[in-house]
Design a protein around this nucleic acid. Structure first.
Length: 257
DNA sequence: ATGTCGCTCATTGAGCGA
């Protein structure tokens, strides 16, 4: 069973890229971020024609998350991250699929830091950690998947010294990510490849992709029972080289059935 | 500071967030 994460950076603007990738790689479950689409414009029929059921939480212009499943029932278990009724951003959606809980997240970027956007990011992360702990206690298989907008360590940045003050790499942010790991969650990609430079995002400007000036910010956090089933992982880096592509590449993990 | 995108509102370009 293959689970994937893909920040599409506009699901309607890049629908051709998404459909081509789905057709070529056939992941079983897909978490999408940055739909940049209101609910009414989510391309439900095109995805259905490609063989995928879907649930989504859209928003005009920004944010937006969705979960796709190929030939499997998706039972929505949550829309929106709990802990702040005033939070209007569409950044979390969750479902039960095939005996697992799949949480799909688009964590706030937080730039510029310091500032109100960075404060929101930190608050969101703390809410997320608290909620993740509740899921952890349920003792069911859980995967928390998406664009975390966090590089966990120096190994996850092409040039760490240039990113020290950025909201994706500041110590406060990495500390919360480290606390998630200390809580018992496993970073699936780092678990399988502890010493390897792996990137999932390359900026559009300054020729970042050809220079491989990348960041690893798209992650899979696994509960203990899913960690035991983890077989392999990868980044579909070639997709980042396609015309009209997102600034992220799809990332995937394979679990034993 | 810069760079390059998609989206929106409202006209062919500006502002925003990333």
């Amino acid at each position: 069973m293959k689970l994937a994460s893909y920040n599409v950076n506009g699901i309607n603007g890049r629908l051709d890229v998404l459909l081509r990738w789905l057709d070529e790689t056939s992941p079983d479950i897909v978490c999408l971020q940055e739909l940049k689409s209101p609910d009414a414009r989510f391309p439900e029929r095109a995805l259905e024609a490609a063989g995928y059921n879907a649930i989504w939480h859209g928003q005009k212009s920004w944010n937006g998350v969705a979960i796709l499943a190929r030939g499997q029932t998706i039972t929505e278990t949550r829309l929106g991250l709990p802990g702040d009724p005033d939070d209007t951003h569409s950044r979390y959606i969750e479902a039960a699929i095939d005996g697992m809980i799949i949480g799909c997240l688009y964590l706030p970027n937080g730039n510029p830091a310091p500032g109100p956007k960075f404060d929101y990011k930190l608050r969101w992360m703390k809410r997320f950690r608290q909620y993740a702990a509740e899921l952890f206690e349920l003792d069911v298989p859980v995967a928390l998947i998406g664009d975390f907008n966090v590089m966990p360590t120096d190994l996850d940045v092409y040039k760490p010294e240039r990113w020290r003050d950025d909201a994706l790499f500041r110590p406060e942010v990495r500390a919360v990510y480290a606390e998630l790991l200390a809580d018992g969650w496993t970073d699936a990609v780092r678990e399988l490849h502890p010493g390897e430079r792996i990137y999932t995002f390359w900026k559009y400007f300054r020729n970042a992709f050809p220079r491989d000036a990348g960041l690893r910010i798209d992650h899979f956090l696994l509960s203990p029972s899913l960690r035991e089933r983890l077989l392999s992982c990868g980044v579909d880096k070639y997709v980042r080289g396609w015309k009209h592509t997102s600034d992220h590449a799809p990332v995937w993990i394979e679990l034993a059935d």
